[in-house]
Write a protein that binds this DNA or RNA. Structure first.
Lengths: 150, 150
DNA sequence: AGTGAAACGACCGTAGA
DNA sequence: TCTACGGTCGTTTCACT
């Protein structure tokens, strides 16, 4: 595998990172391919899971005013716990890590009360969770979706 | 302000979270509006920054094999430091937090060497950075882009 | 704000290099 | 894997509600 993408596909991905609804014809003009060729490549990229074109929303503007990263230490199987955490609707991001936390989970809540409730009545009730540490978001400074094509 | 979105717009956002290229006509059928009405609402949502439709890529499949969250403690103005960190191309996510870290930054690197280099020669060289703690990602368990419309 | 109609442009399958 | 082309469907504009 390796980097996997040739220059043409990288250019196509870049175009779609700017505007996910840009037409294949327009992208074709920008990268020097026919519309059909662009369509074919986009199809393959999405089929292989390299790329997906989706709507992303701003939680703050949707009434979710409390976001936080929760650092979790646990004993037992981290995979099972991570899997359980993933099922919670308030959690949008779960990653198993090496370091002083075993799992990092990002949560999106409507307000502080629902965050407290989530912590006390859900996360800390899971088997194996020993300690948690909460980092409430004060300001989201940067959020990019264009990994890999800098 | 508040939650801001009525039921119809929420349904539209949901459709586009499933497939960012779904046609307005198809969305219209699904939510019970005309194509023109859907397009109007999508336009407003993106203009206001509530939603954006973009391609998101999988770093692993693009040759970026090392990801990590960096917890940063600093003195001085966290906003200025966060702003500086945001300028680094390896960093895709920066948030100012309350708790035992002042800033959390997610980094995407090609390999362990470039992560070490990033930490030693860039992040730790910034004014005000006192300590950093690195959480290397072992497994990305969940990653959602559909906040706010559960 | 939403609808409907007509002109325009995008999309998709297929054939061929 | 790409281009070319034609049928179909989506998008856009505008007048109207």
């Amino acid at each position: 595998m390796g980097s996997g993408l040739d220059e043409l596909s990288k250019l196509i991905v870049e175009q779609l990172q700017q505007d996910g609804r840009k037409s294949y014809a327009e992208i074709g003009k920008a990268v020097g391919l026919s519309e059909a060729a662009v369509r074919q490549r986009v199809q393959k990229l999405t089929d292989k899971g390299v790329m997906q074109i989706v709507a992303v929303t701003d939680p703050m503007q949707l009434g979710f005013y409390t976001q936080a990263m929760i650092g979790i230490r646990c004993n037992g199987d981290t995979t099972i716990l991570a899997d359980e955490l993933s099922k919670l609707p308030e959690i949008d991001y779960v990653v198993i890590t090496a370091g002083s936390f075993d799992i990092l989970a990002e949560v999106v809540c409507e307000n502080d009360d629902s965050l407290i409730n989530l912590l006390n009545n859900k996360i800390r009730k899971f088997d194996g969770v020993t300690t948690t540490e909460t980092f409430v978001y004060l300001k989201l400074q940067k959020q990019l979706y264009n990994w890999g094509t800098r």
